[in-house]
Structure formats: structure tokens, C-alpha cells
Design a protein around this nucleic acid. Sequence first.
RNA 1: GCCGCCGUGGUGGAAUUUGGUAUACACGAUCGACUUAAAAUCGAUUGCCGCAAGGCAUGUCGGUUCAAAUCCGACCGGCGGCACCA
Length: 803
Amino acid sequence: MKKYNPKQIESKWQKYWEAKKVYNTKEAENNYMLLTEFPYPSGNLHIGHWYAFALPDILARYLRMTGKNVMYPIGFDAFGLPAENAAIKNNIHPETWTKKNITYMTKQLKSMGATFDWSREVQTIDPDYYKWTQWMFLKFYEKGWVYRAATKVNWCPNDKTVLANEQVVDGRCDRCDSEVIQKELTQWMFKITEFADDLAGGLKDLDWQETAKLGQLNWIGRSEGAKIKFKLTDIPGQKDGRHFVDAFTTRADTLFGVTAVVISPELAQKWIDVGWRASEEVKEYVKKSLTKRELERQETAEKTGIDAGIFAVNPINDEKIPVWVADYVLGHYGTGAVMFVPAHDQRDYEFAKKYSLLIKTVVEPVAIEKNLTNEAYVGPGILANSGKYNGVESEDAKKKITEELKLSGFGDFQRTYRLHDWVLSRQRYWGVPIPMVNCLKCGYQPAPEKDLPIKLPSLEDFKPADDGRSPLAKATKWLKVKCPKCEGEAERETDTMDTFVDSSWYFMRYTDPKNKKEFASKEKMAKWLPVPMYIGGAEHTTMHLLYARFFAKALQKLGHVDFLEPFIGRRNRGIILGPDHQKMSKSRGNVVDPDIEVKKYGADAVRMYLAFMGPYEQGGPWSPGGIIGVYRFLSRVWNVFNFAKDVVLPSAKNIVLHKTIKKIGEDIQNMRFNTGVSELMKLLNELESYQLPVSVQKTFLQLLAPFAPHMTEEVWINVMKNKNSIHLEKWPKYDPKLIIEEKVALVVQVNGKTRDVIKASGSLSEEEVRKLALASDKIKKHLVGKDVKKFIYVPGRLINLVI
RNA sequence: GCCGCCGUGGUGGAAUUUGGUAUACACGAUCGACUUAAAAUCGAUUGCCGCAAGGCAUGUCGGUUCAAAUCCGACCGGCGGCACCA
């Protein structure tokens, strides 16, 4: 008998499955797309990739055995910044670098023995793919869901380039170390906020972890309040310009406590731009605040501001109040202006203390719990100093005051969102070109659909252009194009798309990856979508999942898809930490290389250990010694199943077997792979010393097959001499009758402490059980000289005697 | 600061869904078998105190309950997300 040697069997079966196309999917009756987030081709597979792909593969294999037609797709999210960095560093073209990585990682992925359907592989850098990314952009543009607006970007004055947040280290450029400044740039935006309500409302019925739903809700950040109009007085030099300012508040009930209006530097700048003749000090302050980086503005706890020198009128009581400009008011949230209520808002309170502004209490707490010194009272209460609203409860007052303002035209109910529109432009080379044309006469025009895909030109030099424009500005030949409207001279847009755009619809392409006429046919999508289960990282809870949901909703409104939600089920997996319980990183030297582990123990052991180490949704530390346990288990199985015996299993063991079949199935479905593995180990411990009938050996192998696909296949075909792959077998059925035991173990407690365990039939009456319990010597000992005051009987579980 | 999650042996973890035998399964450790020896393998022991009977243990303190790792409250510690959102 040969020793278990994974090296000798694993690649053999991988080739066999590929040759037989075992995992290539066609549409059938019980279609099930098990989706995982497609990888970025970084160049090397790490243990996290195994966790991300090899574990869901256990579920994929299980579902297939239970009769589902499972598609387990794979692809590459292949545009992005690292390719450009590698290109600049190693003088290699981003495309060459990326494609090389894809080839290598494909090889590595195949070493997992997963059931990927490579025939449906999708790559976002494929022009046949990004043609449709561009097409969707154009469709959204037609609908008015794409627009241009000025936003702030991180700008390196030395490299003359836009930096991503992760390229800014301590306020400095990570390449040249010069100080990063904030620069306004006009960028392409997706109007995702128009879908904010749908995105928030649609979460309700989804089978997602509550934390993920909550994460999205917080990110969308819907907030119900009121918009209140303040008339402005004394604006020198302005006749018909800005006479009003709107402020968003969730506390309309505190309107009588307003002692100022505070506007953001951004709003002040807008006023200056339309002719507000502010004092030099104010202009100076606005200028200074705006050049401060947003981060810096938030990090300094100290609020600063300046009296704008003008006045506003409180619409509820016509009080004249000052207007201030302050940097703690955000330009991009609400209306960029707030009504200043220092008595009932902590930030306003701190500001009032610093600049000696009036504090006016208008809400009294119902019960004073603590002494409020140096802080605002932000809770609900009863209104005071509020004219006719005195005595009204604050929640009620919000409504009544807003309604009064609505009548006079000075306010209305308003909803605001934290969610910003999605800035999709990137000033980068390695991305999907935005299909727009800039004509001097006609302005921006959409590229004609027949020109798609607008292919990314092959550049020699993909550093940003000298004027700071995107690298594509250097592709002079590519750049020149006729205006689709006036036929005059025009230029292509040089920005490329955020890679999150590419990944917002890739799962749809899996259903119809070769389609030349559409991004995917409606019929094929209907067969597979929406995705019943999507497994991925928690880091994608807000951005990727929200963007993909936005795409689905937008495409649905355009009539191209039939579902409102793309992902019915969603589970976030945990993170594999290094043996030192820290995040794996090269600098810590705690990185686990899966290739090395596979060489030592085989792919089956690596898969199974990852499954065994802890709950999938939790992740945890990789312990180098732990995998040996799984390897030993596989070796034991190998030895037990190398010769077949023709005997009968004792019925007690048969009951254990059937219970285990049930439990493992449930564990896999719930992604409790860790307890599933331990059940298999228990079962082996239970059966190992017995002579096993062939049927039991088969069942055991079938239960193990999703976890250890290679080894089970080897035994199945070469030892047990079966003709077809074990992975085409049906999942074993358990006999429900066998699982219900005649006699149950009944725990007998005295005062809640377990004193004995008696075997009894589950159908006994309370009186009969009582007799049994009191007859036990172990129990009698504890009852000497005491009365049983209470007798608790939980049928099938326990008896508790209270004395 | 706000929101969320978590805290169980020397270690990873099980039992939390449904309050009902806490520590399954595995690693490690100790002892033993086999071996010239080692590795591998196999067997035994392994929460703490105790010879035992028994007692004590799920971050800490309190509560609900016949019964709490599980539910509730406060605190301590760790992790993740957001970060002046009016």
C-alpha cells in the first residue's frame, strides 16, 4: 500500500477534470451562480486568495452534488494603478505586466483544484468587455446620470499629477515626497445620489449579514430634516444676487435658539465669485481655509471662523442675526450652511464659547440626568423661549415649525444624504477610456455607439502629460477626432474610468461572456441572475457593493435587466492573519505562501485546514502547526480506504453516520466549514477501528469530496474502481428515522448542577421520569434530608430538582 | 467622538441560531509502545484546586431565571468601519 502523497495525485486530477470539462456550465433547470469577487492580477496568489476561492468551492461542490447546476465563475479585474506603478518602476508596459500576471495567477488558481468555469472567464481589460463598460456609460449619459462637476483632488505639484488617497503618505507624495495640495478639477460624475432612496430601501429583503446592510445604510446616511431659508440683509454691491441662504437642519425645533448663520468657506467663495464684496480679512480667511487639505481641516480639532460682516433674518421671529464663515461647516454636505444653535449642538457650542457668541436655550430636558457644564443639550425635550411653541414636545415641534415655514415659503421638509455622487474620472493611463469627445464649438459630446470600443492606445510613456493632463493626452494621433455633432475638429476625452466601474457589472457578463451584440442577452441573464450568493471581503461592503447595486438599478430602469437587486445573498469572509495574530505583511515577515504549503502538504490539506481553522465569516490566525492535523487526517483516510471489506456496520455506528450526513450538509450550507471538518474527523474516529462495508466507505468519501477533491477522486477511481468522477455523485441522503433515537440521554440536575445522566425514552410522562430520577443513587445522595420544592422537566433534555 | 463586532484551556476553536451535560474537533505538551536511534505512526493523560468526595472556572461587577458562555445593565480590554454629516 502506497503512502498518501498528494504531489503524485493532485495535478493529475486537475488535468483530468479540465480535459473532461467537468465544471463548464450550460444553462439547465437548477441554475445557481456562486459568485466570488474576481481577483486583481497583482502577480502572486497569497493565502487570502485561497481563502476567498477554495472555501466557497466547498460550497460549490456540495451544491452541485445536491442537484444544483452550479456556475463557479472566475475572471480578472485587471485595470488599475499598480500596473502603472510597476510599469514606471520596472520599465515594462502595464499591459505586458498585467497579462504576465494573469497567466501566472491562472496557473496558481488551477492548483487549488477548484471548480472554476474557465470557459466563461472575463477580463476587464479585454476590449470586448470594456466596450460594454463604455456603452453603459453612454446609456447613463443619455439619461442624465452622468455629469461634470468640480471636485477636489490630491495634487502633487512636482509630478504634476493627481494622486489617489493611498498615494498620499502623511500629506506627501509617495513618489517624490513633495507636499500634496488640494486642487479643483472638473471631473465626470455618476449621479448615484438619485438612487439613494432605492439603494437604502432595497436592502430590506436581502439575505445579507446585518452588519453589511447597516454599513450600507450608514454610508448612504439618509437624514430627515428641514431646509430653512434665511433672508440676508446688508449685502453691499448686490442688487439681485444672493439674497437668501438655505440651511439644512434635523432640529427645526431649535429654530428660536438660532443666534447666527454659519456658512462653509466653499459657499463663501461662491458668493465672492458672484460679487459679494467681503472684507479683505474674510477673503483672506476663505482663501486660507480652502487651500488647507480636507484631511488637515478635519484633524485639527480647533474650529476657526470669522464674522462675515453681514446679517441674516430668522424667518420664525424676524430676529436679525450675524453671518459667520467657519471651516467646521462642510461645503459638500446639506446646503453648505448651518443655522447656529449653540445651546443644542456641541460643535456650535464650542464655537460660541471661542468667539463669545450668544447662547440661547430653547429646549428643556424633561428630566435632568446630569449637570450640563461645558456642553450643549442635544437630547429631546420641551420647548421654551419659543413664542407660541413653548411647552410643545421637540419631536412635535419639528413638524409644526417646518409646516409653518412651508406656508410662508421659508422652509420645507428635506431629506439629505451623506452619500456623494460618484467621481468616476481618473487621470491615469491604465483604465477604460471615457467615451466622450470634446469639441471647441459644441462642448462635450458622447462618442457615437458605432465607434465602441474606444480602444486604449498603446503608449510608450504613460506618465502624466506635462500640463498635468492624463497620460492619454500624449497619444496625439488617437486624440484627434471629428466632432460627432458638427464634424469639426475635436479631441477625445483623456480621462479613464475608475476601476470600480469595470467591476460593477462583471457578474452579468459571466452569463453570456462571448456575446458580441449585447453586454449579455436578457434571456441568459434571466437564467442565472440575480446572484443567489455572493461571497467576498468586508472591505467591499460600501463601495463595490453599492456601485454594483447602482448599476443594476440603473440598467433595470433602462430596461436592460429584469431585477432590482443583483445580489440576493451576500456573506463577508474573515481575514487570515499571520501566525502572530497580525495582518500579514512583508515588512512583518509573517506572510504565509500557499505555494510552499501546497508543496509540503498538498492542495487538499491547505483547503481543508483553511476550512478547519475557524468560522469563515471570522477568519483568524494561520497557525503553522495546525495544518499537520488535517494532513494526518487525510493520511488516515487514505490508509483506511485503500482496501474494501464486505461486512455490516453495527447499527449504533450507522446512526452516527446518518447524523453526520445531516450535520455536514447543514454546516456547508451555513458556511460553517470548520465544524463540518470536525464532524468528518469525529466520524473517522468513530469508524476507523471497524471493518467498513463498501457502501459506508463510499458515503464517507462523498462527504469528504467537497473538502478534499483530489484525494477522494484518487481513491474513488483508482482504489474503489468507480468509472466516473466522485464529483458527479449525488450527496448522500440520511434516513430521518434513524436519527430519532429511541432512548435519549436525560440530564438530571439538582439545583441546576448536573448530578447524573439517565437513559430514558423520549416519550415518558413527567411522573414516570420523576420516578426514574429519584431512583438514581447519585441523585439520592444529594437529596438526603431535603424536600424537592420544584420539579422541572424539559422532555428530551433534562430534569432539574430544586431543593 | 459615533456606529458595529468580539472577549471560552498553553494555542486555533466547539456549544450563542433555540438559555438546559461548558471546553467537541484539532494543535501543542507529558508519559508509554515500536526503533540501535531519530522521524513517522500508534496508545494514554491533559481547564484549575483536591488522594478522594467535592469545589471553582467562559474579561470584570451586577440583574433576570429552576437554570446564563448564551438574555439585560454598567465597566474593562481588543478589532473593524466612519470621522466636525448640522
